[in-house]
């Protein structure tokens, strides 16, 4: 999924109706306890359906990883097996130590991806925190307009705007004398901007949840605005900042179409997704290395996803669960 698309908002409102569901759960547990073996058997189809869902979800990922570990002979065959009979690291070795694109090694692509994502995350966190404080702590004339603007921008598809964004950056390069296409600088700017609407909306709830009394008490004690920001706001908003940052990280890490258009043939500056797509275009039959590289691309997202999954659900659907 082009992660640019995701929305999110503050506060896990999914949790609001907790008391009712808690009671329901307890009652449900009693019922399970009293169930006769026969009734248990009746829920067997449900378990089977659940297992089917699990297998459907997991299988493609499993197949990706397994293929990455299979020796070439087991990939180039009609007798596909579910397990590698002789697992090998040769594909990973080729991806990491060889050259997916002639003249450039894996570490450079990894470096490119890390540079753009980390810059976008850091810069985005800073800018969105400022804006979130404005939206959560102040009532100003254009506040509602700003929020609605964010909601609209987060929906406008990058895929539709790609031509004008490309031409826009071309003009900016000409006007400023700084080359923004064909290297990472243009991507740094776009990736920072793209996550902003979502991260601002995510952080907004966290800032609003910090009791104002805390800040006022500190102010009475003579703390400066800066101290209040660092000592009081920051620690309390930190969890939200982490969630928003991970979200921005996944967005930038997966981004494809902007990198594709901005980087063109400058293979030195390719990010990982672009490298993978380029390699696939050139060596479309090398499924071992392709799957190994896909696995490597997937791992960081999986790891970070574990942390933000709850926020994705609650944030994305915002207050809708309130009913």
């Amino acid at each position: 999924m082009t992660a640019i698309d995701n929305t999110a908002g503050p506060s896990a409102r999914a949790a609001t109706a907790a008391p009712g569901s808690g009671a329901g759960r307890r009652r449900g547990a009693e019922r399970v306890y009293r169930r006769s073996p026969l009734r248990r058997l009746r829920s067997l189809p449900l378990y089977l359906a659940g297992i089917a869902v699990f297998l459907f979800s997991v299988f493609p990922v499993y197949w990706m990883v397994v293929t990455a570990f299979k020796p070439v002979g087991e990939i180039f065959t009609r007798n596909q097996t579910l397990f590698p009979s002789a697992p090998t690291l040769e594909h990973f070795d080729r991806v990491v130590n060889g050259q997916l694109i002639p003249g450039v090694n894996f570490w450079q692509f990894l470096g490119n991806s890390l540079v753009v994502t980390l810059f976008a995350v850091g810069m985005g966190a800073f800018l969105s925190l400022l804006a979130a404080v404005a939206v959560a702590r102040f009532r100003f004339k254009l506040r509602t307009a700003f929020i609605i603007l964010l909601m609209i921008i987060q929906m406008v598809p990058m895929e539709a705007m790609i031509i004008s964004i490309f031409l826009n950056f071309r003009q900016l390069s000409d006007a400023s004398g700084v080359q923004l296409l064909g290297n990472l600088s243009g991507l740094l700017i776009v990736y920072t901007a793209v996550s902003l609407p979502i991260t601002i909306m995510m952080l907004r709830g966290f800032v609003a949840a910090v009791p104002k009394e805390l800040e006022e008490a500190a102010a009475i004690d003579g703390a400066s605005a800066w101290t209040i920001f660092w000592r009081i706001l920051m620690p309390l908003v930190a969890p939200g900042l982490v969630a928003a940052s991970i979200f921005a990280f996944i967005t930038a890490w997966n981004e494809f179409i902007v990198a594709l258009t901005f980087l063109g043939r400058s293979t030195d500056h390719y990010t990982l997704p672009l490298t993978l797509s380029y390699y696939f275009g050139r060596f479309g039959t090398e499924w071992g290395p392709i799957m190994a590289a896909s696995t490597l691309l997937t791992i960081p997202v999986m790891v970070f996803f574990l942390f933000v999954q709850r926020r994705m659900v609650s944030g994305l659907t915002m207050g809708a669960v309130k009913g």
Binding site: A3, F54, P60, P273, S294, T298, V301
Partner: peptide, 17 residues
């Protein structure tokens, strides 16, 4: 299990399919 499907980058998913 579902989270694995959800978290897979679009590019990796497309290549696997």
């Amino acid at each position: 299990g579902m989270m694995l499907a959800w978290a897979t980058p679009a590019l990796s998913a497309s290549l696997v399919f």
